[in-house]
Design a protein around this nucleic acid. Structure first.
Lengths: 205, 205
DNA sequence: ACCATCGTGGTACGTTCGTATCACGAAGAA
DNA sequence: TTCTTCGTGATACGAACGTACCACGATGGT
């Protein structure tokens, strides 16, 4: 039975198990045995594909970042074929809000990694630090695009507004995560600022 | 030597040690023995004053919230005797940004607690969930006060702007914490939005 | 057909953690 | 004084963790 196995696929499956159990019980409470059980494999196998726990965590973070990218892309595709910049921005921001159970787990694990990264140099060096910067540039690009289409006033500082929206989204996301704020009200706050930036363009039916 | 001892004082000192070491190495890496060593007492004493680790964490969170209140109060007092609402709001927002080493530790530990609270019911029930709500009301009150003094346009939704500023502050704080954004630029973003809300009033020398 | 290697299981080891137990000196109450 | 309670130390215990070790069946190369 034990043929040659695709390592990458196996590693991904285990990483997915890691994210699942971390989303359920918190990353701090996850051990290798838990990951093994969740993935339905033996402890030895987790050791085999990731020699050490640190490597497992690192790979888990990578996997999480990838999944986030896919999530945003999927949400973007939902808004239609030729969405305006605003619809695209909305999709991007809403995708990073912990609305359903999956994205809640997502936010939780991501925040856990962020906390770990403050004290763990190996994690701090990961691209997870570079990704949000890229997101800010993308958002700023969309805003500039909207500006050139006269949807946004020329005086608006797009880079700064992009940073603001992202920071707000992150802050609101955390509030939603700890059940301090409802997803609905978080969306309302973001919509308000989009309305402000896209002055003159109104859209809530 | 062993006279009667003020329990509250002792507990506070131990809680301070907990926060210190958690700020240095991350809350996840803190054990009772570390706290004992940091406080300069024996492990037994930590056990004696807090029977269980959970109680220690709970008390630590309380202590942290209190210190945050004092921190904000102190920062408010700095702005002078009769500060305008804007100066007060600035003090409040800047106080919750991780600028110096102390407030960095502060943010880190606070965020760690937030992550734990998602999966730990005992922590989730703590006032730490209620505090930010109060902060939002205070901020909204200050904005309304400014509105009545004609420093803020009448059309502004103060509650919503308060929520926005707080969310932004939290999000920016995290960015600063993971060295993804400089404190200076975080301050700039906040200042921008204060300038927007306090339209017409300018103040940076 | 043989052998090296791969995938896998089981299990043991050393450490660390939170907690519990035993012991004892000092101080206030009687 | 005598005794009870308080504060403190040292140490032990059981569990859980990450990791290492050993064994073995299956497979592919030669």
């Amino acid at each position: 039975m034990p043929k040659r196995v695709d390592h990458a696929e196996r590693r991904t499956e285990i990483a997915k198990a890691l994210v699942r159990v971390a989303g359920r019980r918190g990353l701090h409470a996850v051990g290798m045995r838990d990951v093994a059980a969740e993935a339905g494999v033996s402890l030895r196998l987790v050791q085999y594909y990731f020699e050490t726990k640190e490597k497992l965590l690192l790979y888990g973070l990578q996997h999480l970042a990838e999944r986030f990218g896919e999530r945003v892309a999927a949400r973007s595709r939902t808004v239609g074929d030729n969405p305006g910049p605003r619809a695209m921005i909305e999709a991007l921001l809403m995708a990073s809000l912990p609305t359903d159970e999956e994205s809640r787990a997502f936010h939780l694990v991501y925040t856990s990694y962020a906390v770990l990264a403050v004290t763990d140099p190996a994690l701090a060096a990961q691209p997870f630090i570079r990704n949000p910067d890229a997101a800010e540039d993308v958002l700023a690009g969309l805003l500039r695009q909207a500006q050139e289409a006269d949807l946004v006033a020329p005086g608006v500082d797009v880079q700064l507004e992009a940073a603001s929206l992202l920071a707000m989204s992150a802050g609101l996301g955390t509030s939603v995560l700890v059940n301090q704020r409802s997803p609905r009200s978080a969306v309302a706050v973001l919509e308000h600022h989009l309305n402000r930036i896209f002055q003159g363009s109104d859209q809530d039916p």
